[in-house]
Design a protein around this nucleic acid. Structure first.
Lengths: 233, 233
DNA sequence: TATAAATGTTAGAGTAGTCTAACAAATTTT
DNA sequence: AAAATTTGTTAGACTACTCTAACATTTATA
């Protein structure tokens, strides 16, 4: 069983690699900055995680997670996002309040707890920020999460979350006929003021850029397995 | 903000004092045994907690919580019991599974979380073990929790929890007309086999001792304020 | 390609919490 | 009340994680 600290290092490494798909690994300074510790501290921990076979690391080299390390990290992300969903959906926390508490809850050790929580929440796909929740099997779909404002002309997407929790905004969302899991097609985008014309359930509406920036959507979801070793060659 | 460890020391001290109302304070060995550490370790921590004004302690003397320390400890107990209730009621954990996970969850730092959880659970009075849950104001009712088998002839009590979670037992409970919060009057107790005759909602039934040992009840609840300083003299 | 800049590592030290071993005080027994 | 036992404390050491300061390696730049 890993300590909170070790878990945080694994989680940061996964987050860094997810943010930069093209990169081959993280750097010590980068990792240290992500965890808000000094590089020297990160070096020490990397040696420890290496000895536990959770990271691939050698002096002055790039850092990456081993298969076991990645699996562990995905579990932490899963816990984090399930707790965020719980706080948001069941305890009426707002979009911006969930993260801090989930940072603590993600370290609770109990497989049964997380399985039951998943069930209780009815196996949610997305957390309140629109990020995908890894499955119990450790599958992490990479969602190309963006705001509706970033969706290109003619493209379709699915609403996964809101960024603004004010009553005004949420009423407006309902008025436009939008809701979680609705499919949205962007019919056109005005170049002058970025006014969007969208179609939801066959209904066409116009929404401002400000509005669109507060709606999170995913475009074409893609599955990424927890490891590439399962691939046959 | 206190560390997990410091919180555990305060919690243990409160638990020890609650278990022995008549005693004037805990001893170092007793506290150390409760926390599964060595006495030397406890001595060190006591000095630290004393410097934070959370315990009253002097060399070779009895240990007790200050008003501030007790307040903190009651909050931890409150969190623990609310989480147990959540696990039991919402995530279908059994009576005996909740404690271990609640030991972890009780240390999560978020006032909003615990207030919302309390609301979500509809302000429960008792946890799955039949122990009272301190209120948001820090009031801890001392319940004279016992099993139905221990209730004296002629006495009345209220059912607060079950000890056995098997389907067989729970079906039996329903059959006898029992449920959480029901008032039970013990009409008579057979001295030979402890068979109980009880009255619930005007209906009289007979239950075995084995059955009665798996029902938790409270008899005459008594309120105990978080501090005795509020008493005027 | 030599030098400067950026990046990463090592050594030594500090804090929190734990331990063991030796000692000190309080309590119980005779 | 003296001795024995129990209880509690001190001193020194260990682990996990962190830091700063000095040094080493790699990369970028002139």
């Amino acid at each position: 069983m890993l300590s909170f600290t070790e878990e945080n290092y694994l989680k940061s490494l996964l987050q860094i690699t997810l943010e930069n798909e093209e990169k081959n690994g993280a750097g010590t300074n980068e990792l240290a900055a992500h965890l808000k510790v000094k590089p020297a501290t990160a070096t020490d921990m990397l040696k420890k995680l290496k000895s536990k076979k959770l990271v691939d690391y050698k002096k002055y080299g790039k850092i990456s997670l081993t298969v076991a390390g990645r699996k562990y990290a995905v579990e932490i992300i899963r816990k984090h996002r399930l707790w965020e969903t719980f706080l948001y959906k069941k305890l009426s926390f707002t979009w911006d309040e969930v993260h801090e508490v989930a940072e603590q809850l993600e370290h609770i050790q109990s497989q049964k707890l997380i399985d039951r929580l998943d069930e209780f929440l009815e196996y949610p796909e997305f957390d309140p920020h629109g990020d995908t929740i890894p499955t119990a099997k450790g599958e992490l779909k990479i969602s190309f999460k963006k705001t509706l404002a970033e969706v290109a002309d003619g493209q379709s997407c699915k609403m996964v979350a809101v960024k603004d929790n004010s009553a005004d905004f949420l009423k407006y969302v309902v008025k436009v006929g939008l809701g979680i899991n609705n499919n949205i097609k962007v019919l056109s985008k005005e170049s002058y003021d970025s006014l969007l014309t969208i179609e939801v359930n066959g209904v066409v509406s116009s929404v401002s850029q400000k509005f669109a920036q507060n709606i999170f959507v995913v475009c074409p979801p893609d599955t990424m397995k927890p490891t590439s070793k399962t691939k046959k060659r």
